[in-house]
Design a protein around this nucleic acid. Structure first.
Lengths: 251, 251
DNA sequence: TGCCTACAATGGTCGGACCAAACACGAATA
DNA sequence: TATTCGTGTTTGGTCCGACCATTGTAGGCA
């Protein structure tokens, strides 16, 4: 099945061979690779090289390694998690201005909304409304659970993306949702914004359910108006002179 | 209730430590990690573990490893390549229908075009026109170089994405371009399509350069009309050669 | 029948050895 | 003096053989 290697960078060569075997279906998700000691002799190389190759593929998300008897390297079905992770890593080194992220999210939302209205089943649209109302109720409580509501917000977005009936939008949305969960939920910290944003989510969902594209787009626009306002306010608050005072306070 | 912890895994622990050091700036791009043998004693572990940790980080794109004296592991500035790669990998395992890809690309192109017209410098727009004309000239030859023209087409797309002045669009476009380079260039194989598509690219670029949004969007629409036609034709040709005449009434 | 222990398979780690590439520096040469 | 050629040192790349830790299982024992 595998061809022995001799050139430099053997581990990468081996990783490529295994990756190819996975990609063209000679190995399918759930199956197990031979044990390290066995591959060692199949490839005609040392065990360290095999281990490094496995590490590479594991990092790529293609393999899952288990210890013990019946252990070994199992082929994994890739999920969006890996993309989200590398995106998050990238964004840590290349901070994107919040405005750029918002711009991206807004165009993404608008596109997805159009597609969702056109393609989704009525049942899904009703489900979206139901969940949006649930989020609204959750956020109107006196002591909202921020973790739960952020999670629900994320799920609403992903649900909407799925309704577009195009996996590419679903994946991009997923990656964005996982890549940064910081800015968006600033909106929910302030009571005034929270109530308006929640009500707006419900209205958006209802407009979608009724097939009212332009109204839905209007609500989406308002959501981002709110978000921009909210972030601006926070920025001026923390950049004001008394920020200095706050720092001293912390020491 | 409790989350199981995979004990051991020293290499991953080390990778995390180094990654943290990079992320919070204790190590900056361009700097060099200690040699493997040195880290071996610093971490109090075997050299194999260190090597596996380095492999992980290298795969993540955080390190670049060089051999020889003055070699070693250098901290790298991340680029979009890594994200594109993981997306491409994902897309290979989860094939999407061509129509879904086209739908995605079309909305992406339209959005990017709007932003590019609004944000790009005139010089960039003129450069785009110049390159589009170059592509057109290249494709009008009797014996076009498909590799070179596909590459130029890709670069035009990425150039346009960069003009949107939002790294997120650049990233998505990059990833898409790398993820599948198959369908799009079907357009260039047939002489009739090739000429129309090339001329259309030039017109699109010119409309962008002149700030004519609606005209540009029109040309983009036409590009995808052509692409869909072309793919349909190919599909019917390869699947049932006799049914060719059924598609004739389309134009 | 049901629990428990011993065993075998497998990944994880260690240390030492050697190879191969890349660079530095000095000697030999034009 | 400037250039070229070796030669040595540093460093990653590979191999080997041993041992440890975990895990599933089969067989023994109550």
């Amino acid at each position: 099945m595998f061809i022995p290697v001799q050139a430099g960078r053997a581990s990468e060569e081996i990783a490529l061979q295994i990756e190819a075997a996975i990609m063209d279906g000679r190995l399918s998700p759930g199956e197990r690779l031979p044990s390290e000691r066995e591959m060692q002799s199949q490839f005609g190389t040392g065990r360290g090289v095999i281990r490094e190759a496995i590490k590479i593929l594991k990092q790529k998300g293609l393999l899952e390694v288990k210890k013990g008897a019946k252990g070994g390297a199992y082929i994994r079905q890739l999920d969006v998690g890996n993309i989200s992770e590398s995106l998050a890593l990238f964004l840590k080194q290349h901070p994107v201005e919040p405005e750029k992220l918002i711009e991206f999210r807004e165009t993404l939302d608008r596109t997805i909304t159009q597609l969702a209205i056109a393609h989704a089943e009525q049942a899904e649209k009703d489900e979206l409304v139901k969940e949006a109302l649930r989020l609204e109720a959750m956020l109107l409580e006196d002591e909202p659970d921020f973790t739960a509501s952020s999670e629900l917000d994320r799920q609403l977005n992903i649900m909407l993306a799925r309704m577009a009936r195009n996996p590419l939008f679903e994946w991009v949305m997923h990656a964005i949702q996982m890549g940064f969960n910081s800015h968006d939920y600033a909106l929910y910290e302030d009571k005034a914004y929270r109530e308006r944003a929640a009500a707006n989510w419900s209205k958006t969902a209802q407009a979608i359910a009724q097939g009212e594209l332009m109204r839905a787009l209007g609500f989406i626009g308002y959501h981002y108006v709110l978000l921009r306002q909210c972030i601006d306010e926070k920025a001026t608050l923390t950049n004001e002179p008394d920020a200095e005072f706050l720092q001293k306070d912390e020491q």
